[in-house]
Amino acid sequence: MAKYLYEVHFVRGRSNPEHDVFLRNVLELNAKTSDYGGINNLCVVSHHKDRDTVFELCADGLKKSKNDLSVIEITKTTLNSPNGTHRLFRDLIETYFLPNANYPNVK
């Protein structure tokens, strides 16, 4: 089954009062980050569902901060964009995600 990669961003990270809810949700989705500092406000989630479904899974239980959450699909185009933020995840995607599953929008 094909999977998709998503960048999940939570405004203000640990300073957001609902960060614990956000963190619990993305950890249940096996989110990964490109650095060793842990998940603060930005992570990558692999899932077989569409962007809207992943957004709802990440936002589950958020009361006031649902508007602080964004989910963006990572594709081959966004990874190779010179001005895109997804370049930060290139090593993580190539070494962790690509060898373990089929991501048709990234390959």
Score class of each variant (00 low, 15 high):
residue 5 L to S: 07
residue 60 D to T: 15
residue 9 H to N: 09
residue 100 N to V: 05
residue 24 R to M: 13
residue 81 S to N: 15
residue 102 N to R: 03
residue 7 E to A: 09
residue 57 L to P: 00
residue 61 G to H: 08
residue 54 V to L: 05
residue 76 K to R: 12
residue 102 N to M: 06
residue 66 K to A: 03
residue 37 G to I: 07
residue 31 A to G: 15
residue 15 S to F: 13
residue 54 V to Y: 02
residue 87 R to T: 11
residue 98 L to P: 03
residue 57 L to E: 03
residue 39 I to M: 05
residue 20 D to E: 15
residue 9 H to C: 10
residue 18 E to Y: 12
residue 24 R to S: 15
residue 85 T to D: 05
residue 53 T to A: 00
residue 72 I to F: 08
residue 85 T to V: 12
residue 104 P to C: 07
residue 47 H to P: 01
residue 97 F to G: 08
residue 77 T to F: 14
residue 29 L to A: 10
residue 20 D to L: 10
residue 64 K to V: 01
residue 53 T to I: 07
residue 56 E to V: 06
residue 72 I to Y: 09
residue 69 L to S: 04
residue 86 H to K: 01
residue 66 K to L: 07
residue 83 N to D: 10
residue 2 A to I: 09
residue 92 L to P: 00
residue 88 L to S: 08
residue 2 A to P: 13
residue 16 N to D: 09
residue 105 N to I: 04
residue 96 Y to T: 14
residue 79 L to C: 11
residue 42 L to D: 07
residue 32 K to Y: 08
residue 66 K to Y: 01
residue 6 Y to Q: 02
residue 54 V to P: 04
residue 106 V to R: 00
residue 3 K to W: 09
residue 25 N to F: 11
residue 18 E to F: 08
residue 47 H to D: 14
residue 32 K to T: 06
residue 1 M to W: 05
residue 13 G to H: 06
residue 14 R to L: 12
residue 24 R to V: 13
residue 95 T to I: 12
residue 102 N to W: 14
residue 80 N to Y: 04
residue 99 P to L: 07
residue 29 L to K: 11
residue 72 I to A: 11
residue 55 F to K: 00
residue 5 L to T: 04
residue 83 N to A: 05
residue 22 F to Y: 13
residue 70 S to P: 00
residue 39 I to D: 03
residue 106 V to Y: 00
residue 16 N to F: 11
residue 74 I to N: 00
residue 93 I to P: 00
residue 102 N to D: 13
residue 6 Y to A: 06
residue 98 L to R: 04
residue 27 L to P: 00
residue 93 I to M: 03
residue 96 Y to I: 09
residue 26 V to D: 00
residue 59 A to D: 03
residue 89 F to P: 01
residue 25 N to Q: 14
residue 78 T to D: 02
residue 20 D to F: 07
residue 39 I to N: 02
residue 87 R to I: 11
residue 93 I to R: 03
residue 9 H to K: 15
residue 83 N to L: 11
residue 5 L to R: 01
residue 94 E to P: 00
residue 1 M to S: 09
residue 43 C to M: 02
residue 46 S to D: 11
residue 75 T to K: 08
residue 47 H to V: 03
residue 40 N to F: 08
residue 20 D to G: 10
residue 39 I to Y: 02
residue 76 K to W: 08
residue 65 S to M: 03
residue 92 L to R: 08
residue 92 L to V: 06
residue 100 N to A: 09
residue 36 Y to L: 10
residue 6 Y to F: 04
residue 67 N to M: 00
residue 9 H to F: 14
residue 9 H to Q: 14
residue 52 D to C: 10
residue 42 L to V: 04
residue 58 C to A: 15
residue 74 I to F: 01
residue 82 P to C: 05
residue 33 T to S: 13
residue 102 N to S: 04
residue 24 R to I: 06
residue 67 N to K: 13
residue 63 K to L: 02
residue 95 T to M: 06
residue 20 D to Y: 10
residue 17 P to N: 12
residue 25 N to S: 05
residue 93 I to G: 02
residue 85 T to M: 10
residue 57 L to T: 04
